[in-house]
Design a protein around this nucleic acid. Sequence first.
DNA 1: CTGAGAAATACTCATCATGAGAACAACATC
DNA 2: GATGTTGTTCTCATGATGAGTATTTCTCAG
Lengths: 269, 269
Amino acid sequence: MDAQPARTDDEAAFLATYDPRAFPAIALTVDVVVLTMREGRLNVLLVERAAPPFQGRWALPGGFVKAGEEGLDEAAARELAEETGLSAGALRRVHLEQLGSYGAPERDPRMHVVSVAYLAFAPDLPDPRAGGDAARAVWTPVAGPHGGGTGDRRLTGRELAFDHAAILADALDRARAKLEYTPLATAFLAPEFTIPELRTVYEEIWGEKLHPGNFHRKVLSVPGFVESTGETAERGGSRGGPRARVYRAGDARLLHPALLRPDREEGVR
Amino acid sequence: MDAQPARTDDEAAFLATYDPRAFPAIALTVDVVVLTMREGRLNVLLVERAAPPFQGRWALPGGFVKAGEEGLDEAAARELAEETGLSAGALRRVHLEQLGSYGAPERDPRMHVVSVAYLAFAPDLPDPRAGGDAARAVWTPVAGPHGGGTGDRRLTGRELAFDHAAILADALDRARAKLEYTPLATAFLAPEFTIPELRTVYEEIWGEKLHPGNFHRKVLSVPGFVESTGETAERGGSRGGPRARVYRAGDARLLHPALLRPDREEGVR
DNA sequence: CTGAGAAATACTCATCATGAGAACAACATC
DNA sequence: GATGTTGTTCTCATGATGAGTATTTCTCAG
């Protein structure tokens, strides 16, 4: 929604003499927290930095926004495509949203760099490819909210560059909240899935077991969450049990009523 | 991630020879959507631009981030203090949170300017003062979600500069959602308030009347939302009725269970 | 091939939260 | 004082939730 004004003569003259270099120098980057499920575990995409600062340290994939050429969403989508090697078609199945911006002056030792962080939910993706300034790129399992100890390696077991540990922690908080009132858990699955598969997504991201019967009832009772394909899974559960029915994502954008996390007396503090 | 090709393996030497001017030029601003309640109506702070572009047009208060000197939160707090004339003490009673970043390349005709938008909830504030690049600064009533027609003047009756109409719309969406699961409605009131006063905040921001009895029961039943002062209001309601009891904000950060908006079948679309 | 265990789905039941409405007393205004 | 409005408390019907059980169908070990 950019309202573009009718340019007055004054304004045209102003623009002609305008010197962008007169503005303070702040660099702008986009970093992406790409989450996917691999073998039933939540994974995040990390790259090993090939250049200083933090050379050799792991970091979130990202890069500079191309000035004057692209918006923030486009820059994030470009970074995502570059690191994952996904085609434009495959990207359409990925959920991408802005997480927030991080701009402490000292977060980058070189200069003042502000990073706009994005969060992506993707179905099981192929192995990533290192590109440009990344020596390697890997999927790394992420500990649940109750896992690990404390400190910088708490979530991934690796010490991350810049303030990327804080960004990742914020991303996981956002992801856990999003599962409550949106149907985005389906973004981690193939187009057709079973309710037990959907439940494992919730259990993995929330870090706790859910009641299978109540979860089943809830998913089917929320309008637009899933719709039946009429099919049945090829096999039963890995350790027995009947074949589950197959569903695909419905047309709901919000879950109503929401699917709230159990317990959680975190209201007060 | 924030990488520049390595010129040397020695990080210290690298930093010493680093040239910030080699980076693409993107300017970074902070804009603040300051919401307050005045005479029972939701108001937003707007400034009239004293300089091009959009000279004479109304806009959200904001300005450039001081490179290397301040983080984003500090810049937003500084802009808020400058435009409202609030002291550091009064600022402590204001809720300030990051809303999101807006970076379409053409949103500013001068050059690529990315704006980090913030959202502030404040109790009834004094008249603003114009400062710096603002010719005037005024509190402007905002139409509720069902009010007004369509188009750029829908929310405030004024056509806003840049993409500020979109930012304001996002801010109001965020505010409406925040009232559901946080106790932040109290940020619009004095330290001591009555439950009917709190209800008017919800009604004004959500744009619909609430059931007084049910609202009262709900507010008192959510742990940590409000705590009683034992006092009673000086006067009854403006058109009659008994004197209400006085409460202050409790220690909850989140409402559990949430105080959900009525109806709202907006899940599907 | 068979038995044991596990899992998908469908119930039941007690509890809690919600929406709607009524009751009643205290207050402002005329 | 009369009238109408409002704060607060109740009641009642309905819907959502958590916990547990039942039934059936499957995998896997032996």
